[in-house]
Design a protein around this nucleic acid. Structure first.
Lengths: 242, 242
DNA sequence: CAGCCCCTTCGATCCGAGTCGAAACTTCGT
DNA sequence: ACGAAGTTTCGACTCGGATCGAAGGGGCTG
């Protein structure tokens, strides 16, 4: 009888309003790699004037999607939490692919599909293959909506020079699946996943290029992939060069 | 060097544009229960003029989010697929709760939290509890990003008068987890989940009220919950009445 | 067959939101 | 301390899109 719209569930309009603007989406995608960027850089990425970028950053701050380092004098904006990056992955999972006109755009997309950074962990074919490898070798086991380290899993990781992240220092989950738009699968999220990327980066297995979300697997990294039981990655390191 | 925004990933703006309008979201939420509704009814739910509703329906059709029965003379719109309902659940999972001002709105929200229909299967506390019960009793087992029926699971279901859905008649998954915004957990999606709701509805265990997404568990249904090993549901049937 | 109801299309209106430039403010380097 | 570069705020403009009413077209019913 009440003719108004009285839907009682979550408010999707807030999400939609923030995502309906190309410049804001460009900003969020620029930050999705986990890097903290300055307003001027974000304005360039979004192809808008600095004042416009500032306007958008204020909106995203209000929504709690991004934060900026308070202590530093120069503001650097970044995603508010790893969960925001996972939300973006969720949304990308269901979004249609953007039309790609240029050759550069095509190459960039292929690089993203292959291996990219989702806030602080690996995604793309690399991330999905890693997750499948850990499950196949019974390092992790699916347990409800999260992954559990098996009894032998801890030793398995230590055998590969991984130091396990200590549990419970904050509320972040140890290991959870995160939808991946690349291959319609899941990649590993959570503290373990972040530790793996940190470990691989420190040892030079993967390199994070400047100004891009994509990851480059080095030749040493490809040897490491074999040690981890990852075989699905398509490109050889020489083929990944420009 | 290229100053334009050359992001190569999926286009989130399309999703955002569709979701940025309250009337369109109201229409989608009205259809999320799985019911096929006529334009006039949707216009009432969205609190807009019929012409405006028609405008929105055309946009949602173009996007492929909804379809209408072609054969019938009277058009009834419904979601294009179960996957669309899951997308909405995903989004609701990450969206902030809508502000509730009225008592009716509060009651409606509680009803949705308790038990609701997500296209053709159960969601809310009921759906989450069902999924956990099936996992706990080893009827289903998590296997990557989907659920697998165990060897004993088929008999377990048949013992409860369930006829299993035949696999592979279409491409729809047998059983998959689907994020549930109610309790930050997962409920069961896929063909098995739809079969369970059909079975329960036919036997009068649950009732789908007209003009609402919420489900009502009957007293016979509460007995059935015990048989399925579901104990978490909070309200007794008498307490659920208005 | 006629009348009624419902839905869609079209035209016009209006509001909100994104955009930029100018100006003020802050911070860093010289 | 002063100049330069970067960032934010403010004001004004513009434009896309949501909205409704009127008109046109079917379909069902009496």
């Amino acid at each position: 009888m009440t003719s108004g719209r009285d839907y009682a569930g979550p408010d999707l309009v807030i999400i939609g309003s923030l995502l309906s603007d190309p410049a804001r989406v460009a900003i969020m995608m620029a930050l999705a790699g986990g890097e903290a960027l300055r307003p001027g850089e974000l304005a360039k990425r979004a192809a808008v004037a600095p004042s416009t970028a500032s306007f958008h950053l204020a909106k995203l701050m209000d929504a709690g999607w991004i934060v900026h380092d308070q202590q530093a004098a120069i503001r650097r904006y970044k995603l508010a939490s790893p969960e925001v990056a996972e939300i973006l992955e969720h949304l990308a999972y269901v979004a249609p692919p953007a039309p790609v006109s240029s050759l550069r755009g095509h190459q960039a997309r292929e690089a993203l599909r292959e291996a990219r950074c989702c806030y602080d962990h690996m995604a793309g074919t690399l991330g999905v293959s890693l997750t499948q490898a850990l499950l196949r070798q019974d390092v992790l086991r699916a347990c409800g909506d999260h992954f559990q380290l098996t009894a032998d899993g801890g030793q398995w990781l230590r055998n590969r020079a991984m130091s396990l992240p200590e549990p419970g220092v904050d509320k972040r989950a140890f290991a959870r699946p995160c939808l991946d738009w690349t291959e319609r699968g899941c990649h590993l999220a959570g503290r373990l996943s972040a530790a793996i990327l940190t470990h691989w980066t420190e040892h030079g297995y993967v390199i994070r290029p400047e100004k891009a979300r994509s990851l480059r697997v080095t030749s040493a990294g490809h040897e490491q992939l074999i040690a981890w039981g990852i075989t699905k990655l398509s490109h050889e390191p020489t083929a990944a060069g420009s």
